Amino acid sequence: MLAGRLNTDTLEFAVVDVPKPEPDAGQVLIKVQAAGVCLSDAHLIDGTLSPLYLEGDTVTLGHEVAGTVEALGPGVNGWRPGQRVLLQAGEPRADGTVLTRGVDYDGGWAEYAVATASTLVSIPDDLPYEQAAIIPDAVSTPWAAITSTAFTRPAQAAGVWGVGGLGAHAVQLLRMMGVAPIIAVDPISVARERAVGFGADLVLDPDDGNLRERVFEETAGAGLAVAFDFAGVAAVREQAVGCLAPEGKLVLAGLTNKPLTITNGIAFSYFKQQILGHYGSQPEHVEQLVKLTSGHRIDFSRSVSDVLPLADAEKAVDRLLRKEGNPIRLILKP
């Protein structure tokens, strides 16, 4: 079968022929129907990110995966061939560590993938595979940031810095929750236009010299109850802190290795503001989102920017890095 394989030592990536895997005890063989291309996949290829728990030096990428059950390994019950499923992006171990699919073990940029049975989530017949695949991570990460890290409530004012693959969904999810107003900040005009379509009340360019004033004007002088950094840019964080209300929260969902600074530390302490780190999601967040899509409370049809054959995985990564068409998610289809 074809699989997109990365050598994490040499950073050589290629779609190559490999043996079709067989499910071990407790595992299920999945025929992959769709797999998302995430910026973290690109960062694995360029060496910015490295696996923590990978055994060996080569891995099949892809942590956003949906498909059908192909075969059951020994001891697996409750599933049958042909069932439509998505795969959780992570798998907890007994020692408390979490392995990430497509990072610490083989993922879904392949014609077939094996998955521990407990990481399967059933999806409804009317949810396209292309949309189901991106729920783990592209949607569940902002959903977890909004609901479990920030504990965002209806009618609160929220800001979203970076309206890419995660931030666009954050705007959409905040709108669904009744958050108001929603202010989206992005340097790319197409992304700002998209934010309006996804439910933002106000869109701003981060280079706007009056950005802080406009945020406070939009929030009737109160400032933001919560601000989300999905850009992973140090300057964004400084700007977002300056837009917070008293006791406001800045949630760091975008990743950067740059220092975190607060220019006015006295004001930050006086107003009892908070900075909260965030990473990924838990299984229940994915399950909640599948339930919401099943109930037609939200759909992700606008999130699939293009579908490419698995053989064009390198092309997809290049398009993502160059922001060609400013995609939300590119999908690989074996």
Score class of each variant (00 low, 15 high):
35 A>Y: 03
313 A>Y: 02
32 V>R: 04
47 G>E: 10
189 S>Q: 10
38 C>R: 00
289 L>Y: 10
157 A>M: 10
72 L>G: 08
179 V>K: 01
312 D>G: 05
73 G>Q: 10
316 A>S: 14
112 Y>E: 07
324 E>N: 10
268 F>M: 06
101 R>Q: 15
30 I>H: 00
289 L>A: 10
27 Q>E: 14
66 A>Y: 00
270 Y>G: 03
322 R>V: 12
301 S>I: 13
252 L>V: 04
170 A>V: 12
206 P>E: 05
130 E>D: 14
95 D>Q: 08
39 L>W: 02
242 G>V: 06
46 D>C: 07
224 L>I: 08
126 D>H: 15
266 I>N: 04
177 M>G: 13
281 S>F: 02
125 D>P: 09
333 K>M: 09
203 V>A: 01
186 D>I: 14
96 G>M: 08
326 N>H: 15
8 T>W: 09
283 P>D: 04
81 P>I: 06
23 P>E: 03
112 Y>L: 12
283 P>E: 00
326 N>F: 12
309 P>T: 07
252 L>T: 01
319 R>E: 03
112 Y>P: 00
188 I>G: 01
234 A>W: 05
39 L>S: 08
41 D>M: 03
200 A>I: 15
220 A>R: 15
105 Y>W: 15
65 V>G: 02
149 T>H: 13
41 D>A: 04
282 Q>F: 00
332 L>P: 02
212 R>K: 13
76 V>M: 03
92 P>L: 12
21 P>T: 09
183 I>T: 04
80 R>S: 14
280 G>M: 02
297 R>K: 14
270 Y>F: 11
305 S>D: 05
231 A>F: 04
90 G>R: 00
237 R>W: 03
124 P>Y: 07
75 G>R: 05
50 S>H: 13
152 T>V: 14
188 I>Q: 08
94 A>H: 09
82 G>P: 05
117 A>M: 09
298 I>T: 07
205 D>I: 13
188 I>T: 12
98 V>C: 01
21 P>L: 05
17 D>S: 15
276 L>F: 07
39 L>Q: 04
31 K>C: 03
154 P>R: 06
116 T>L: 08
61 L>P: 11
69 V>Y: 01
205 D>L: 13
264 N>W: 11
265 G>M: 14
316 A>W: 01
182 I>P: 02
139 V>W: 00
131 Q>A: 13
224 L>H: 05
199 G>L: 11
3 A>S: 12
243 C>D: 00
103 V>K: 02
311 A>H: 05
73 G>P: 10
135 I>T: 13
267 A>K: 03
204 L>Q: 06
116 T>F: 10
266 I>T: 10
253 A>S: 14
334 P>R: 01
104 D>I: 15
134 I>L: 15
189 S>I: 06
22 E>C: 13
198 F>W: 08
131 Q>D: 14
269 S>G: 11
140 S>F: 05
34 A>V: 07
146 I>M: 04
288 Q>C: 13
273 Q>V: 03
50 S>E: 02
44 L>V: 03
3 A>D: 06
15 V>R: 08
334 P>N: 01
226 V>E: 02
228 F>S: 04
200 A>M: 11
176 M>T: 09
76 V>P: 00
3 A>T: 07
292 L>W: 08
14 A>D: 14
124 P>S: 10
